[in-house]
Design a protein around this nucleic acid. Structure first.
Lengths: 155, 155
DNA sequence: CAAATCTCAGCGGCACTGAAATTT
DNA sequence: CAAATTTCAGTGACGCTGAGATTT
């Protein structure tokens, strides 16, 4: 007798892309959460540190746009990062509505740590796929994302 | 100047499968939520109705296992479905720990309604992909899911 | 006794809304 | 004036935990 959950899932669900996506994303979330938890971090922290490392200092609104994080959640995540000395917030003299957020050396070290544990989580997540299949998956997901980004520029 | 969010996303994120998955799943959730909302339903409702339609009456624990829904959330969703006459709960005479959950004719009509709106949401979600690419995506996601189901039988 | 089932109360990450205060 | 930015308070779907009561 087959006792696995997914093999017994209703045909309707197994044929529905959005259901497959959410199931796989749940697995991914579990793995990444475990990996980041060992470094006391969350998804938003990694995204924000990545954006700051790649593009340099930025306003909170810009960070939110780049990472696809709501303005409100950017505030909360930056509070946590700043509280631990991983980023600094300073007023923008050129536009006093804005904060300029900058990543600190400690923030860059944390990012490197997260890169490592995150890589291992990806390997676990995709353990069932060949290198070719992983490439194809990334390309397909990127294509969907780009399509919707074109339909729905910024939020 | 390019003002789209996803094209500007950090390279680290765009190369991380789990991030791509969660972004696409967020889009999917928005579309499906909108579709189901027009029929006053949620994801769990569709999953449970699907399982009942395909496999016939079942206990709550079995429904949870089949659909990948936590026992606790099964209770809540069935409360809502039963309250609207879409399923019935009756004690199992053969094992009095269990309820036997059965879908009603109204539940089947609701399922048919949901099938229709859900199909349109999938088309929107995958509008950027060819039929071939959609097939490939489904196969890749299924392969990941089956791999983890084998590693992690039930829950 | 151990294990399974149903139920309830509650938590936490994440996406999101609405509104206020400030500045452009 | 309208629009953008930061911030806060709060909501809601969803995954999950722990515990109690009942039954096998």
């Amino acid at each position: 007798m087959d006792t696995t959950a997914y093999n017994a899932a209703p045909t309707r669900l197994r044929n529905t892309p959005s259901w497959l996506l959410s199931q796989v994303t749940t697995h991914a979330h579990r793995l990444v959460w475990g990996a980041f938890g060992s470094a006391d971090a969350r998804n938003h922290h990694y995204a924000l540190l990545s954006a700051l490392e790649e593009h340099g200092p930025a306003s909170q609104a810009e960070l939110g746009r780049r990472c696809g994080i709501d303005r409100s959640d950017v505030v909360a995540a930056l509070n946590e990062l700043a509280g631990r000395g991983l980023v600094t917030r300073s007023p923008d003299p050129a536009d006093r509505r804005r904060n300029i957020v900058t990543v600190t050396p400690a923030g860059l070290r944390q990012l490197a740590r997260l890169d490592e544990v995150l890589g291992r989580a990806q390997d676990e997540l995709l353990a069932g796929l060949s290198a070719d299949e992983r490439d194809r998956l990334i390309r397909l997901l990127t294509k969907i994302l780009d399509h919707h980004a074109a339909q729905r520029p910024n939020h």
